[in-house]
Nucleic acid binder design. Structure first.
Lengths: 234, 234
DNA sequence: TTCATACTTCGATCATGAGCGAAGCATGTG
DNA sequence: CACATGCTTCGCTCATGATCGAAGTATGAA
């Protein structure tokens, strides 16, 4: 009855407070140095170094040297997805209240999940795109439809300019505050970048909160309207 | 920069091998006794007792006394969802190969995720229902449409007979082998039960594998055809 | 070149928690 | 009632791993 992958090892990596803080800091999507992460974790540089080695060996974190600096990032948005799922469970288990969300309403509304938009607005965007036939499920992954191609081109995203990477273009990511999927993958990243380039939204300095301007939010709601409710609500 | 829920505590609970084995065993959806779980975990009854107390206190597992027996289940399918996500990451990080799945093809194809169908067939069912307008996203959750109501009634599921529970009727659950959503919630459970009642599928004795009969699989594929690919595949 | 900074490695400490033997409590059966 | 079984609690052991001081290596700047 020992079926499937071994989850204890991965969970144990996340289960140390210092390492959890490191991973949470990397959810911002920024590449952070070992010294910065030591500060985030609240431990010395030597302790952080050991932790980072474990996270790297464990396949959760990637490292890149740049002169004397070493930058760390999460390996993939799948890691971010797992952290999101754990956050949802931790938030729920901690309070045992129904539909418990984060204390910070801004985090719930719109925040960075690694490199794409999460929160209620992230979920709304995903659902709107599915409802409008811009995204479509297939047997392998989410597919950007022809209409979707036109849509993102009109938004100002050049799909041919995206890096050739093994990361999928579109991907679901389960949102912990909204308990439903938001859009991850290269397209999710590109869209958030576009919002920021258009000055519709900006990132907060030391937070994962994404703040939309009133005009930006209006434009967002116009582009990604809430899908209509069906008549058969229970 | 200590935003969001504390994930270390939850992850540490999962990060012990004995407790991970317990949780994995409970993914079968069966209610198992403390003695059975001790066996699954490979520890003595006293050790299992301590572990189960931690899982119960931590909000991951629920206990119910029945005479001298005590039965344990996962608290919710959200817990199952987190375990699924961790399994996906563990499978990937363990091998660092692209699109790594489980070793057992049967688990990948169709298996129990707590109480509903998971694997490729679970994902196909979900997507088919969305594509056919039986399930529809709303701002709160997945909604079963009017057409969906008719569909499940015709399948033989009496929605009025489902337990009045705070668990949602429909819910997404991210599938670790297919890396996309399958249907959880009360409806997901009811549908799998219906498949089994119709003898389309059966559960394996000491495994989470769900085996469809040839006729059952044919009927399944007829009811839940694979959504068509859009022309704009990349 | 010297000095400062970023990061890693080593060695030692010690808090933590998993584990089990022993014992006790609760329930069921004959 | 006696005995068996399921489960919990207590006390102790000891392996593990996080932590930091010390020291070393690598890189950058003056």
């Amino acid at each position: 009855m020992k079926e499937g992958p071994d989850i204890a090892q991965i969970a144990a990596l996340i289960g140390d407070p210092a390492r959890a803080n490191i991973l949470t800091a990397l959810m911002s999507g920024k590449a952070l140095t070992a010294t910065e992460l030591a500060f985030e974790a609240g431990v010395t540089a030597q302790t952080a170094s050991a932790h980072l080695a474990k996270l790297t060996d464990g396949g959760l974190v990637a490292a890149r040297k740049s002169g004397r600096h070493k930058y760390f990032t999460l390996v993939s948005d799948e890691v971010a997805g797992v952290l999101e799922a754990l956050m949802g469970l931790a938030a729920g288990a901690g309070h045992l209240r129904k539909r418990t969300g984060p204390k910070d309403g801004a985090m719930r509304k719109a925040r960075i999940c690694y490199n794409h938009l999460a929160g209620d607005m992230g979920v709304q965007m995903y659902r709107s795109m599915v409802a409008k036939g811009l995204l479509e499920p297939s047997d392998e992954s989410l597919i950007l439809t022809k209409a979707g191609h036109a849509f993102v081109s009109e938004l100002g995203i050049d799909l041919d300019a995206l890096p050739t990477s093994k990361a999928p273009l579109c991907r679901e990511c389960l949102d912990w505050s909204a308990r439903s999927s938001h859009l991850a993958g290269q397209l999710g990243r590109a869209i958030l970048s576009r919002f920021i380039a258009l000055n519709w939204a900006k990132r907060e300095e030391n937070s994962r909160v994404v703040t939309f301007t009133p005009d930006g939010e209006k434009a967002f709601l116009s582009l990604f309207p809430m899908p209509e409710r069906s008549i058969a609500e229970l």
